[in-house]
Amino acid sequence: MNHFTITKPSPSMWRVSFDNPPVNVFSSQTIIELRALVDAAEADPDLTVILFESANPEFFCAHWDLTDDTSSLASEPPPVTGQQAFVDVLIRLSKLPVISISSIRGRARGAGSEFLLATDIRFASRERTLIGQFEMTTGLAPGGGSVSRLPRLVGRARALEILAGADDFDGDLAERYGYVNRSLPDAELDAFVDAFAQRVARTDRGAIAELKGWVNEMTLPEDQEFAPQSDAFFTRLMGPKVSGWIGRSFEQGLQQPGDLENHLGARGFDV
């Protein structure tokens, strides 16, 4: 089953919708599809903007699929950047010579939040957005890039609040902190984001590539920052504390619609 639905309203604009029921978890299959999308975007001379959204209004991307063993990645080509596969594809996404936009409606935590942070621009539904990095509730620090990306967006103190507190941020608070560009009333989100994306789609790809290249030099983390974070994440993931948290969470409804997934930021430490 495909995790993305891709439509192309014009040669210069793609719409990409997450659709992996029931709660849009990110998995090895998602990495494979996202890698193919990034490959195609790099090679398309007409493309200038990619708009990411979700088919599920309650979950943009819940988090990493904690049942995934990553074995399907064994037959894939090696990561381009030399990083682990998830980090690799997010680095490549962040450096695409096109503008990537996330239109956020629903929950995006952990890997879902790290995906958002790798896109260039984030717009959020005021009423329906909850984003955060819940990993510290399980006993491990995030390993997919948020430790490097968040401080550059929101500053050191707020990054530590988001990461160590492991709570959810609604659209307005995320905007205030700089986690997202802006939050809008849910009824206005789609029209605003569509208009912005269509505006960017009118821009010359070469000019976009130059612009992003210059901004990237000033703002993106160096690739070598990510490996120690990923290594520490996977080391702790195999430990008894995290394994116990995962087991108890599945007993309480993890990765299914319901109270735990709806309030994971608030309930994570109590699992």
Rank of each mutant, 00 (worst) to 15 (best):
G268M: 09
L254Q: 04
L93K: 06
I31E: 10
L116A: 08
P97G: 14
Q229G: 08
E161K: 14
L264A: 14
D88V: 07
E53Q: 06
T81A: 10
I104W: 02
S54Y: 00
S148D: 15
I208H: 05
D172P: 05
A111D: 05
G213P: 06
F60C: 07
M238Q: 09
G247W: 00
P77S: 11
L90W: 03
K95H: 13
I246C: 12
A36H: 01
Q133A: 09
G82T: 09
F18R: 02
D194P: 04
K95S: 15
G145N: 07
S183Y: 01
A207Y: 01
E58A: 13
H263D: 12
D204R: 13
G239Q: 07
I50A: 06
D204A: 15
M1C: 10
A62R: 08
A266F: 00
H3C: 14
E161Q: 15
F59E: 02
F59Y: 11
E33H: 00
E33K: 00
V154I: 12
D68K: 09
A118Y: 00
M1F: 05
G145R: 04
I208D: 02
I162A: 15
D44Q: 10
P9L: 13
K212S: 13
C61Q: 12
T81Y: 02
T5E: 15
R15T: 09
I101A: 14
A174V: 03
S243P: 01
I99M: 15
S146L: 04
I32N: 04
R105W: 06
D168M: 06
N262Y: 00
A159Y: 09
V25D: 06
R92S: 07
R205K: 12
R176H: 11
R152K: 11
G112C: 09
A41Q: 03
A174L: 06
D186Q: 05
W214Y: 08
G206C: 08
N24K: 07
G171R: 03
R15Y: 01
E161A: 15
T203M: 06
F233H: 01
A111K: 03
L90N: 08
P142V: 07
V200K: 04
G178K: 00
P78E: 08
R122C: 11
E225G: 12
I91T: 03
V49C: 15
G247D: 08
A157H: 09
R202Q: 13
N2T: 13
L96R: 02
P221Q: 05
A197H: 04
S125E: 07
V25L: 08
F115K: 07
K95N: 14
A174W: 02
W64T: 11
